[in-house]
Design a protein around this nucleic acid. Structure first.
Lengths: 153, 153
DNA sequence: CTCCTTGCAAATTGTTTGCATACCT
DNA sequence: AGGTATGCAAACAATTTGCAAGGAG
């Protein structure tokens, strides 16, 4: 039923812009939704869509992800491993929106998610201090995860 | 004199690791220091170093930037324009360390810097809540800058 | 003298683009 | 029907890597 909701949202926004509702677009959003814990690259998504729709092309996935990002339907994160990743963050978190951050271990590369609302205040402050209207943010912390600290280094 | 200080720091860390102090490494750090307001790509840096040292190679710049980042001498930021950028953030801010963030306008692409210390508390909290030891962070806000808001859009 | 470092050019790899065809509306 | 979207392959661009020559300790 959540599923239904985001799909309807996509349909609506496409209609508003005079764009078309295609199988590919629906499937890509659906894959993102069904893998909401993961940080997926365009290729990951392409492979998953291909399970049900083998003709899908990687270029379409790139184009669609850009579109979904423009429409604020997905979050984009860059974990500095050379490729951009996508996840369907806030849409699924219901009304009690929590900000979702990433802790990146410099030693083992592990990525630990972390939720927190502290940034809401900061966004408010930024708007009144600078006139910049904040739509979204990306916050990453670099450091050492618990396990790597135990192992020395 | 600030200049002197970071150079000594680099020399020290290189020595500690058994690596060599080369002209290229010194010049790259120096260029970063002399352009501390800018967010520079490897190519920007390469061109600037080349003014005094024309034989410099782009690959060396990439290798050195990686090294400086590993040694925590420079900050790395990704403004989603397809290339990684470097700046010499915290080192120059003296003892009163301020965190340095970026507001990125989705309409015109302008990047506005913004300082704030709110994240210190959050880092503390993360460490006690998850055991993750935070060394550094990167925070970006996406939205609309004052000028673009005025122009409608 | 030894090993680290460099510059060059070639190789990689994520992402974008051109174009003819296929598909929504 | 008419313009939008797709798939494919070629094009791009930032970054990395192999290697022989040069330089620091």
């Amino acid at each position: 039923m959540e599923q239904k909701k985001t799909e309807e949202l996509l349909r609506k926004r496409l209609r508003e812009k005079g764009l078309k509702v295609t199988q590919q677009r629906l499937l890509i959003l659906s894959v993102l939704e069904q893998n909401s814990g993961r940080h997926m690259t365009a290729e990951d998504i392409c492979e998953l869509v291909a399970e049900n729709y083998p003709e899908i092309g990687l270029a379409t996935v790139y184009r669609t992800l850009q579109l979904l990002w423009d429409m604020q339907l997905v979050d984009r994160i860059n974990l500095d491993d050379g490729c951009v990743r996508y996840e369907i963050g806030h849409l699924l978190q219901g009304e009690a929106k929590h900000n979702h951050h990433h802790l990146i271990c410099r030693s083992c590369g592990r990525v630990v998610p972390f939720d927190d609302d502290l940034l809401d205040d900061l966004e408010q402050h930024i708007e009144s201090a600078t006139g910049f209207y904040v739509l979204d943010h990306e916050l990453k912390f670099y450091g050492l995860c618990r396990e790597c600290r135990k192992k020395g280094k």
